[in-house]
């Protein structure tokens, strides 16, 4: 059988979601942002949420997420996405409201808004991209930079005595009564992408069922900021980030309930 016989519409098993448009993403080659955003778009399509979804974009590399995913968006000030999402969600309870934030946005400048939105149990999904660095501004130390990690503001590696400790904000959030589902995922392999997609889907369903805040951390790479090739960055993440930020569910209050039909 020739290739030309296989490459036919009816044989497609994987293609770009219609909710993702054709704009070429501005991310560096191999950046995890693209993979996570693709997964979000696929789920919005699969769950038929394009008309109900309102995304809140952060400040950071992913500020232009609104250029790629074909839903209504609001661009928040640095760190304020959970407050913006609260405003939208409280006044539009029929909508599916989600934020997409990096570690500087969510865990540093926006830590207050994040903790309080989660503690109030706002019916929103928060997607937290943790790559341990400020990508857009040129690779400075983030709240989640692990000890010893070299960044442009920790040129000799993060030293807890000098720079403070890395913040495991997801562990804090898992303790808050307003959250129903808190999980830590990654997207560096196909298996990880499948798991991450399942986790985000669960988060979306929880929000649709008004079960409070769902929080999905995605431990990610910033190969430009880390000054590695994308493949080497994935390996470095496995070896160095995962021991400190172990993958898996941190909290799943509703796992005993029957799975939704979606």
């Amino acid at each position: 059988m020739e290739l030309i016989d296989i490459i036919k519409q009816e044989n497609i098993v994987y293609k770009k979601s219609k909710v993702l448009n054709d704009v070429v993403m501005h991310y560096c080659p191999g950046c995890s942002h693209g993979t996570v955003q693709k997964v979000i778009a696929e789920l919005i399509e699969e769950l038929d949420l394009q008309e109900r979804a309102i995304g809140v974009a952060p400040v950071g590399c992913s500020v232009f997420i609104y250029n790629y995913i074909e839903v209504d968006w609001q661009e928040a000030a640095h760190g304020r996405a959970p407050a913006v999402a609260t405003g939208i969600s409280r006044l539009n309870p029929d909508k599916f409201v989600f934020t997409y934030q990096g570690d500087g946005d969510l865990a540093s400048i926006g830590s207050g808004e994040t903790l309080h939105a989660c503690n109030r149990g706002e019916n929103i999904l928060i997607i937290f991209i943790n790559n341990g660095i400020y990508g857009m501004t040129g690779g400075q130390m983030a709240p989640t930079t692990i000890e010893g990690m070299v960044t442009s503001t920790t040129p000799f590696g993060r030293n807890a005595e000098l720079n403070g400790h890395p913040l495991k904000i997801t562990e804090l959030i898992a303790k808050l009564p307003g959250t129903s589902y808190v999980t830590r995922q990654s997207v560096h392999t196909a298996a990880a992408v499948r798991k991450c997609k399942k986790a985000i889907k669960k988060g979306i369903q929880n929000v649709l069922e008004k079960k409070g805040t769902s929080f999905v951390e995605v431990v990610s790479t910033c190969n430009s900021g880390w000054k590695m090739t994308p493949v080497a960055a994935n390996k470095w993440m496995e070896e160095n980030m995962f021991p400190f930020y172990p993958l898996g569910d941190l909290k799943d209050d509703i796992k005993d309930e029957p799975a939704s039909k979606n």
């Binding site: 309102i54 809140v56 609001q74 928040a76 000030a77 304020r80 407050a83 913006v84 999402a85 609260t86 405003g87 939208i88 969600s89 409280r90 006044l91 539009n92 909508k95 808004e113």
Partner: peptide, 9 residues
């Protein structure tokens, strides 16, 4: 920022 979000809708 809650006002910003809600006003945006």
């Amino acid at each position: 920022n809650m006002v910003y979000g809600a006003a945006g809708s």
